[in-house]
């Protein structure tokens, strides 16, 4: 879908490059996570990909064609879901959608999208009267309004309760399953783990790692399993290597002779990997 080669970018008033030669590819039909601490260039990379910043060096192709050769029709192809609400607060939800809808050649029926996101009943309410969670869901409705082939999502579940976050995540998966491509930025590693097929970690204007969440956890984690079991009235725990597990007599003795309370493989968390790879805390980027 997108192929980025040797991308460099410097803001006009800066001396130092913000993007220092990055290469990556976003494959059609995948959810691609772009992660990293604040100020490492995630936002700049996305601004370049959505053609807001034009004066970059290197090559970016979208569907095999130079990104710079696309005109306004590029925006027919993409949907952008912002983290902050982007609505006219004194217009109703329906009026907001009808305004934007008319700018596109193709569009979804707003009623259907509002129903999916649980906002249909409030369609005639001014968006200014919406709760934060409702505004976040409206952002998602707006991103899907033009039947995009590619979605750029920034913190799509931020500020949502678990039920509504689940609805959004299911819709992202549904969108991906129907062939849509997603580039996702989030600091919620749970979302990354649930949604992303591959993730790129950025640090200091460079991409330092690209892989699937599962592979990252395998690479960075310990191949061990911790077994917690009852020993009389006390709880004991023991660690076993996953590599030798089938020949580990002690493991089988514990499993056969004791009541097992918990058994966990000790792969590392994406949060730990994030800190390990990027050298920073997982947080939002400005």
């Amino acid at each position: 879908m997108f192929k980025v080669e040797n991308l460099h970018f410097t803001y006009p008033k800066n001396k130092e490059e913000t993007i220092k030669g990055i290469d990556f590819e976003i494959r059609e039909g995948e959810v691609f996570g772009l992660l990293g601490p604040s100020g490492v260039g995630k936002s700049t990379t996305q601004k370049i990909l959505i053609k807001i910043l034009q004066d970059f060096e290197g090559s970016i192709t979208y569907k095999g064609k130079n990104l710079k050769d696309y005109g306004r029709d590029f925006y027919e192809e993409i949907g952008v879901g912002f983290e902050i609400p982007v609505h006219f607060s004194k217009l109703t939800a329906m009026e907001n959608l009808q305004f934007f809808m008319k700018l596109y050649k193709n569009h979804e029926e707003p009623d259907e999208l509002l129903k999916k996101l649980g906002l249909y009943e409030d369609r005639n309410k001014k968006v200014g009267e919406f709760s934060k969670g409702m505004k976040v869901r409206m952002n998602f409705v707006k991103a899907l309004l033009n039947k995009p082939k590619m979605l750029f999502l920034d913190e799509p579940t931020a500020g949502l309760d678990p039920k509504n976050a689940r609805i959004i995540k299911n819709l992202i998966r549904e969108y991906r399953d129907q062939g849509g491509t997603v580039i996702l930025t989030t600091h919620l590693m749970n979302d990354v783990e649930e949604l992303c097929d591959r993730v790129a970690f950025m640090a200091d204007g460079k991409i330092v790692e690209i892989n699937s969440p599962k592979n990252l956890k395998l690479q960075h984690g310990d191949r061990k399993v911790e077994v917690e079991y009852e020993m009389g009235e006390k709880l004991e725990s023991q660690m076993f290597s996953l590599d030798d597990l089938k020949e580990d007599e002690e493991f089988f003795r514990v499993v056969k002779n004791h009541r097992i309370i918990t058994m966990h493989s000790k792969e590392t968390t994406l949060d730990d990997i994030f800190i390990d790879i990027t050298g920073g805390e997982s947080s939002e980027e400005s």
Binding site: I50, R72, P85
Partner: peptide, 14 residues
């Protein structure tokens, strides 16, 4: 203030 400029400039208008 309402960040709608962001939304406008990722739609197919000049």
């Amino acid at each position: 203030e309402e960040h709608t400029l962001k939304a406008l400039f990722v739609s197919p208008i000049t």
